[in-house]
Amino acid sequence: MEMMIYSIVSVKKNTKKLDALLAGIKGLSNTDLYVVTLDEIAAVVSDVNRADLIVDKSSAIEYAGVIETLAQQFTLLPVRYGSVMESTDTTKKMLERNYNEIQCNLLKVENKVEYGLKVFCDSEKLKTELKDKSETEPAIELEQGIEKSIYSKYLYKKLKEHRFEESLLAHIDAIIQNITTHLAQLNSIHRFKKMVTETTIIDVVILLKKNEKEGLIQAVKELQIQYTGLKFVLTGQWPPYNFVDITIK
């Protein structure tokens, strides 16, 4: 029978606590959850028939719910939705082949959880503010008095846009620098993408010790006070979805 893997859990050679937890929860399509163990790690799985598997949003949410419940009590590596192994034997062999990498990743995320921080801006308002500021600065030298051709005028218009774009990016980079400095003070590991959309100036994922939640909330509150024109949205706690660096062999 094929099996779906939900996550790989650090059990430290004791699966009793995990077995007890699994007895109270169900896998996709109300299936029973059980473990395939290898030394200090265990893969949480449920039987699945690939042909009957319905891949949709509600199923993905259900899958994430199982990982979420496990993550509340165990250090784990979430496995990508839809990962199916052929049998208990192939699952065990996979754990064997990747044992060291799995242990390394489990160690990295031990007693830590993931948070998401998104910072949104009103892009039009931000551009207007910067435009107002740039207009008080010395204008581009256009050699006043000399009649310009349409090509020169076009080029200087482009130059003005280019300078504005550069100042906008510099402004955003300064904000990002400030945010990441705040996060670094919490001894967190973070990864970010900047300017994901015109209004999302930074999208950060943060890995932090479970007991440092309040410190993070406080840091975000302080940033919000500093940047009243921006909107900070902090979410969590999530299993460490973005901090598993492993390519399964």
Binding site: Y115, F120, K213, L216, I217, V220, K221, Q224, K231, F232, V233, L234, T235, G236, W238
Partner: peptide, 12 residues
């Protein structure tokens, strides 16, 4: 799951 937010849920 939202720990901090100054806008509304609709905005998010």
């Amino acid at each position: 799951k939202i720990l901090f937010n100054t806008g509304s849920l609709d905005e998010i």
